[in-house]
Amino acid sequence: MKMLHLATILLTLSGVLTQSSDWGVKYPDKPIYAVRGFSVSIPCSYSYPTSNPNIQVTQKLWCSMNSNKGRCLDPTYVYNSASNTKSDFVYVGDDKSDCTLLIHNLQFSYSGEYRFRFITDQPSDRYTGDPGVTLQVADLKVSLIRLSGNGTLKQGDSLNLTCDVKCTHSSSQFVWSKNNEQLNTSGPVLHFPALTVRDSGSYTCTWKTNETSGFKMISLQVEGLTGENPDHWPIWIIVVLTAGLIFIIVAIPAVIYNRR
């Protein structure tokens, strides 16, 4: 009995109770990847003996192991429910079982391991989820790769637009759109076997996972065979065509009337 009591004291002093399966924190099994400048949601759930009505969660904490040397006990928490400080780290969970963390305006420095810790109103009842969850922040890039032609893009040239994020994720999806209209294609590569002037426009690649998304845009301007884009005719051509059309509308009925 004395040895068991001593073991319980040691576990309590460590700040991590493991003597009961009712206590725990669950994170995603794999690292979470996200795009710099965007937001990410880190799913998280926690448990404690809810059968005991005397136990109430009084404080929720998230720590970055970049600033905590091996233990989530230092005061430099990225989130602390006891503080009103506003930051990029927002707790969107509850006091029962959800400990989800939302991070805005992601930076490379946010990459690392994160752990959730909760404290109850019972002096010896507190728990830290160890090991935590790993976040990796990367850049999203859209590259233009010429397959034929050089210099200014012209009709008949071929190229690929490639969407690249430096990570691999089983739930990754790539969605392409042109001028804010979604294209019927998927995958990280958008292929143009032979460009036309109608391919000119702004293209956006959106990268999505279950936890986050990010996008990057690139513009294409394709010249016609004469160096003119018929979708953007000079004003003088539009004026001449309009005047000619008005003349035809007015003149032809007048000629028919005079012949009568």
Rank of each mutant, 00 (worst) to 15 (best):
R198E: 14
P123V: 05
F215I: 01
N105R: 07
Q107V: 07
S158Q: 08
K216Q: 15
E113F: 06
Y203G: 13
I119P: 08
N105T: 08
R126K: 03
S202C: 04
T18A: 09
V175P: 03
A82F: 05
S109H: 06
V175K: 00
L225R: 02
T50A: 04
S213E: 12
I246C: 15
W23I: 01
L4R: 00
E181L: 08
D121S: 09
D130Q: 08
P31D: 15
W62P: 05
L225E: 11
A138I: 04
W62F: 13
W207N: 02
A138Q: 08
I248M: 04
N80K: 02
V175H: 03
K178W: 11
R115H: 09
K154R: 05
D94P: 14
F38D: 14
P28W: 02
D130G: 03
K2G: 10
I235V: 14
N66H: 05
W23Y: 11
T134K: 03
D22E: 15
N68W: 08
T242D: 07
E113T: 11
E181C: 05
N54D: 14
L161C: 10
S172A: 06
V142C: 13
S158V: 06
I237S: 11
P253N: 13
Q182T: 15
F116A: 14
L245I: 14
R71L: 12
G93M: 02
T50P: 01
L225P: 13
Y91Q: 01
L220A: 10
K69Q: 13
T100Y: 07
A7N: 11
N84F: 09
L220G: 12
M65P: 05
I42S: 03
K86Q: 11
T162G: 02
P53R: 02
H232F: 15
Q56T: 15
T8Q: 07
C63I: 09
P53L: 12
N184P: 06
R198K: 01
L159E: 11
S186C: 03
W62T: 03
G244Y: 07
K96S: 12
A254G: 14
P193Q: 00
